[in-house]
């Protein structure tokens, strides 16, 4: 029996992620949600979802010691970051008055500027970006298997990541005149700004390939 563990730092809505993983996991997989360092360190694969404000997220991670656990699993296990689970990997975020991240990826997390306009329709765009946007795949990757390039995924976010090194880009998305990293890939880590657990069949496909992914 293999275990995929969803990290619970006390804030996020984890049910959607666990339900989606349960849907795609075959009988060899056990899907669990845990806040316990020893359980997380024993897992075969890690999913780190996140929602809400990054200031709360980072302070909860350091209070619980999960920040150190995350650094260990980032170095050793197949890891899928979702939304804040991507943003928190960077050096620094503008959110919550300026918040230091895990600095596993060099770079910043910035807020969409306001006002922001659609370059074609000239219509003002809302922040948060909420809804289905396209992801341009910038590299082939096992997690993109069976997902056509430029497929739409479900996004909800006001901040976006700007990694320092373009070599880790796996996908980009455009909002207004901003093209940002909506997926990054580095060694055993894949992290996305969108919500695969809410992106219907293509999102389930990505989760299913995460479980099948061997590094």
């Amino acid at each position: 029996m293999k275990t995929v563990t969803i990290i619970d730092y006390g804030m996020s809505n984890l049910r959607s992620v666990s339900k989606a993983l349960e849907r795609v996991a075959d009988a060899d997989w056990q899907v669990q949600i845990s806040a316990q360092p020893e359980t997380i360190l024993k897992a075969d694969k890690i999913v780190f979802p996140g929602q809400g404000a990054i200031g709360n997220c980072m302070s909860l991670l350091s209070q619980t010691g999960l920040d150190e656990v995350l650094k260990t699993v980032l170095a050793t296990k197949p890891f899928l970051g979702i939304c804040l689970g991507l943003q928190s990997l960077l050096t620094f975020s503008q959110e919550s008055g300026g918040t230091a991240g895990l600095n596993w990826i060099s770079g910043h997390v910035n807020r969409f500027p306001e006002p922001l306009f659609d370059p074609t329709t000239r219509q003002r765009l809302k922040v948060p970006q909420m809804g289905w946007s396209q992801v341009q795949q910038t590299i082939p990757h096992f997690l993109w298997t069976k997902i056509p390039d430029h497929s739409r995924f479900y996004f909800v976010h006001s901040y976006y990541v700007t990694p320092e090194h373009a070599s880790i880009l796996a996908g980009t998305t455009q909002y207004g005149n901003i093209t940002y990293a909506s997926a990054i890939a580095k060694d055993n880590v894949f992290a996305v700004q969108f919500h695969p657990e809410k992106s219907q069949q293509l999102g389930l496909s990505l989760l299913s390939h995460f479980l099948q992914w061997s590094i």
Partner: peptide, 8 residues
């Protein structure tokens, strides 16, 4: 192409 308008 940008954000799609949603039908709910």
């Amino acid at each position: 192409m940008g954000l799609a308008k949603r039908i709910i």
